[in-house]
Computed example of a mutant assay.
Amino acid sequence: MLKGKILVVDDEQNILDLVVYNLQAAGYKTITAADGKEAIEKYRSGQPDLVILDVMLPEIDGLEVLSTIRKETQVPVIMLTAKKEEIDKVLGLEMGADDYLTKPFSPRELTARVKAILRRSGENEVKTTQGTIVNGKLKIDTIKHQVFYGDKEVDLTAKEFDLLKLLITNPGRVFSRESLLQSLWDYDYYGDTKTIDVHIRHLRMKIEEDPANPKFIKTVRGVGYKFQE
């Protein structure tokens, strides 16, 4: 029984073959691409459930492919790279990657991570019905711009509402402060991200039982914030 469709992107044919073999053995359907341009085309035409994406690619590099994907969907992405520098890992996570593996890697470990991410992705699906988003005790009415925690209505500003909506509809995804500025304030990052920290602090005070030890909006040190279901 097929469990899902995986797009595997790598310009090294031996790695491509090895990953595909192990994924198919685990019951997944696979589609492949050998460069960044083909990756974007296959992603759009194939609508995969998860993408395994090499960083170093011809035509268009993996980070640019990731950026393109993130503008269109929140499909889970696992990055592969031969680089070991921490900055490369952080950059990939900032841009929306869900996981990261450094070459050489164990095919069995990669398959295990695929299973875990797809399982978590399925568990974290947010229920949306007629403009209402429900995640645990939090409920957002996107039409009336109302937020409830349990049976209690929470009074949010417009930006706080937009910030919570973005985070809650992408549970587990880490957003950098810069990307939040670009998404919600419609301007590029020029050096001051304190406005994000202030809004996060205010939001925590309104939806967290203990703002000093938040359960929903987590800080990812050195990167940004994420919504922890």
Rank of each mutant, 00 (worst) to 15 (best):
T128C: 03
L66A: 05
T132A: 09
L80S: 05
D88W: 12
I87A: 14
K71Q: 12
K89F: 13
G136R: 06
I60M: 04
I60H: 02
N135V: 15
E59F: 06
L57M: 13
S106T: 08
T68Q: 12
I87W: 11
K84F: 10
L57D: 04
V134N: 12
G131V: 04
N135D: 11
E85M: 12
L66H: 11
G92F: 03
A82Y: 02
E125W: 05
S67Q: 13
K83Q: 15
I60Q: 00
P104G: 10
I133M: 10
E86A: 15
T128F: 05
R70F: 03
I87N: 10
T81L: 08
I69S: 01
R113I: 02
L63D: 03
G122L: 02
T129L: 12
E109G: 10
T128H: 03
E123M: 12
S121I: 00
E123S: 09
I87H: 11
Q130G: 00
Q130W: 00
P107Q: 04
K137P: 03
V134H: 11
V55H: 00
R70K: 13
G62I: 07
A116E: 13
I60L: 05
E123Q: 12
E59K: 11
L80M: 12
E64R: 07
E59T: 04
V75W: 02
G136T: 05
L53A: 05
D99E: 14
P76A: 07
D61F: 10
A112S: 14
Q74H: 13
E109R: 11
S67F: 04
V65I: 07
T73H: 07
D88M: 10
D99R: 06
K103P: 00
K71L: 06
M79Q: 10
R119S: 14
K83S: 14
P104R: 05
D88N: 15
D98P: 00
D54Y: 07
K137H: 08
N124F: 08
V126K: 05
L93Q: 09
L101M: 15
V77M: 02
M56H: 13
E59W: 02
I60A: 03
I60C: 02
V65T: 05
